[in-house]
Design a protein around this nucleic acid. Structure first.
Length: 418
DNA sequence: TCTGGGGTCCTAGGACCC
DNA sequence: TCTGGGGTCCTAGGACCC
């Protein structure tokens, strides 16, 4: 039998460059060519002109200004980000039905079935970039390789505004000189641990004995690196699955965890999470809270119930009880700096768009409404908000809370390049 | 000048059942 | 009666990604 042909580099990873900042420069020509940062107190995204001065996401605003005095801060046009990114994804879909979007601004494509229509992967990458540039006006980088992992690394190397095709016959030559931090799953912690052992490049990593590496890196990462080095990364580009959890968090300076604070913050977070669950027609059985103390140490507490939940008031109460539990387990911690709520083990919970049911009597009389009354209250609030906007109505003490320093739109989009 | 927000995946230990 | 092994679910913690 003839030896199998080497796989073609038909997996593409397309990644918009400095996405939020590029959109701002697209919307306002006066910003083009200038160092800009999206955000204020903290930099959410920086243009390449700003990055040249060392500005990057996650940096405090004043530090960024120190590094780059000419830096211009701009507020975010969040609905524009979503709209333009969706346009880009639609263009990607013209080259193959196998598009897997992994965040607002990046996606994998498998073009194995369409090379006969559009030419080899490198040519497809160029056509795709031209169309995004011409029709949307944004720069996008593309990596092409035989596997997702490698394509992702290639697109990072291609930035800004470029293409890198990794020939499957020369993968090691491509990978070996690159820094280990480009490997998926190697973050700052692991990078430091590797550096302590003199390992900085992927080549050095691949050359070190696997068993001892696995011993100190953990089996998961060890096998991941092994698979990468041996080109055994066989994950397919697959249609997007549905989210496995829905959560929200809120950071505030350092505060004493008074009952009033807990009520206000958890009520607001539960309102966000539960209304998003209802909008997706989903509900979840497991509620997890996260409490971060003043020293950045964080703990979690979770509870799994028999019935899936998507009710604001029930979620608030469950979260409150879990947070109290976490606080009681750490009596030495006097201040907290963040609270988070997440709901997982999600199931479908279709909701008929029916007229509002008549409130049961017990809801009117009792201080604590019944399950069906809670359902009715939530859905009437959702309905009003659909018509008049989110701020139109809410739970007492929830909307009035001074805690929401970050506008809700800010929270809708997961940030990138941090 | 302490560091925002929304997710995923992995590990480990314990409970529980067969 | 004692013991072992496997499977599944739950909780908690941590690293990482965008």
């Amino acid at each position: 039998m003839a030896p199998p042909l080497p796989p073609l580099p038909t997996i593409l990873h397309a990644d918009l460059d400095a996405f939020y900042a590029s959109v701002e420069q697209l919307l306002d020509p006066a910003l083009r060519g200038r160092p800009i940062a999206v955000g204020g107190g903290v930099v959410l995204a920086a243009s390449y002109e700003a990055k040249a001065h060392g500005v990057h996401g996650g940096m405090s605003g004043w530090r960024a200004k120190q590094l780059c005095p000419a830096l211009v801060f701009v507020g975010g046009h969040f609905s524009e980000y979503q709209r333009l990114a969706d346009q880009v994804m639609a263009i990607l879909g013209d080259f193959t039905p196998f598009v897997q979007r992994i965040s607002i601004d990046e996606a994998f494509l498998d073009v194995a079935g369409t090379v006969h229509l559009f030419g080899p992967p490198g040519a497809i990458a160029q056509q795709l970039r031209s169309r995004v540039r011409d029709e949307v006006g944004l720069p996008i980088s593309v990596g092409a390789a035989a596997t997702k992992h490698l394509a992702k690394i290639a697109s990072q190397v291609a930035k800004p505004d470029g293409v890198v095709v990794v020939d499957p016959r020369h993968e090691r030559a491509f990978l070996d000189p690159l820094p280990v931090g480009l490997v998926w799953g190697i973050g700052p912690v692991t990078q430091q641990r590797l550096a302590d052992r003199g390992i900085r490049t992927i080549g050095q990593l691949a050359a070190s004995p696997t068993d001892s590496l696995e011993q100190f890196l953990g089996r998961a990462l060890g096998s991941k690196v092994g698979a990468l080095a041996a080109n055994r990364d066989h994950r397919k580009v697959q249609p997007n699955g549905r989210a496995g959890s829905v959560g929200a968090q809120s950071a505030f300076g350092r505060c004493e965890p008074s009952p009033e604070l807990l009520r206000a913050v958890l009520g607001r977070l539960a309102d966000r999470v539960a209304s998003r669950l209802r909008a997706k027609q989903r509900a979840g059985r497991t509620v997890t809270v996260r409490v971060r103390f003043a020293g950045m140490k964080a703990v979690t507490r979770s509870r799994t119930g028999a019935q899936p939940l998507a009710t604001t008031l029930t979620l608030t109460e469950t979260a409150e009880s879990l947070v109290r539990q976490a606080l009681a387990d750490h009596p030495d911690e006097l201040q907290i700096s963040l609270l988070a709520i997440s709901v997982s083990k999600l199931v479908d919970q279709p909701v008929l768009q029916m007229e509002l049911p008549v409130l049961p009597d017990d809801a009117v009389r009792a201080g604590s409404p019944s399950g069906s009354a809670r359902w009715a209250v939530d859905h009437s609030i959702d309905a009003v908000r659909r018509r008049f906007g989110r701020a139109a109505v809410g739970y007492a003490g929830v909307e009035l809370s001074p805690m929401g320093s970050v506008p809700d739109e800010f929270r809708e989009l997961a940030e990138h390049e941090l």
